[in-house]
């Protein structure tokens, strides 16, 4: 293992985590500092009750039905990508621990589990990756071109690169899961373990780019993950 690889594997992950949470706290503070507007900035129609409005916000957030109504193509691309992302995040929990109770309950052994994770991983990975290509393509022409900044391309290329390296591991290399879990748990426990050889060159790229994503996350448009809730509540104040 070279020096750069060593740093990216055992040192920068901690920096990424600190920047990620620190950055989010900083942004929350910035938003808190900005002066709220006392007037009602509601968009109608909206539910009358407070609870109804919260419910409406959540339904909107998890289905993007407003976007579906006005721009179905963009909804297909944007929504599928986010569903894929959600599934991938759920799947990545298995890198640290496992849903032992679930497999016990389903009575699945190693081979069933392997088949399942191959299909689910492949499905989620592609569900995430292909819409990203669509989102990138539409920024090259038409009116969206006017709205596209270097940041927009940077985020898309970054996510696509993470998706490709991830899918490569999932589909081709199939790293040893137990060894991978020991490595990741080691990072959390400050008890460093080697990266499984079977993860290949894709791992270091995937892992390093994910850290770039975490460091970038609080300082760019990906903040919409959190800000959208607040913004949608303003429109239902």
């Amino acid at each position: 293992m070279g020096t750069i690889e060593y740093i990216l594997t055992y040192i920068t992950p901690y920096i990424a985590v600190v920047v990620f949470f620190g950055g989010l706290a900083y942004q929350a503070y910035q938003w808190r500092q900005a002066k709220p507007i006392a007037a009602h900035l509601s968009l109608f129609p909206r539910p009358e009750s407070r609870l109804g409005r919260l419910g409406d916000t959540l339904v909107e957030m998890f289905t993007l039905r407003g976007l579906f109504r006005v721009n179905t193509m963009l909804w297909i691309g944007g929504f599928l990508m986010h569903v894929g992302l959600l599934l991938l995040i759920l799947g990545h929990i298995r890198v640290v621990t496992d849903f032992y109770f679930l497999w016990d309950w389903l009575n699945w052994g190693e081979s069933e589990l392997h088949t399942f994770s191959l299909i689910a991983g492949l499905g989620a990975g592609f569900l995430f990756m292909f819409p990203l290509f669509y989102l990138l393509l539409r920024r090259w022409g038409g009116s969206v071109k006017f709205l596209s900044t270097p940041e927009d391309f940077f985020v898309l290329y970054l996510l696509i690169a993470i998706a490709i390296t991830g899918n490569h591991m999932r589909l081709v290399l199939e790293p040893d899961q137990h060894a991978m879990r020991e490595f990741m748990q080691g990072l959390f426990r400050f008890n460093w373990q080697p990266v499984p050889e079977s993860a290949g060159i894709s791992f270091i790229w995937h892992f390093a780019l994910a850290q770039v994503l975490m460091i970038y996350f609080p300082f760019g448009k990906l903040l919409h993950t959190i800000g959208a809730v607040f913004s949608k509540m303003v429109a239902r104040s």
């Binding site: 002066k35 709220p36 507007i37 900035l41 969206v144 800000g227």
Partner: peptide, 22 residues
Amino acid sequence: RISRPLKYYEDICVRCGACIDA
């Protein structure tokens, strides 16, 4: 004059282009 709702706008707009047709 960047109020809180405008700060959200400044920070979270992803320039998706849905508003182009509006």
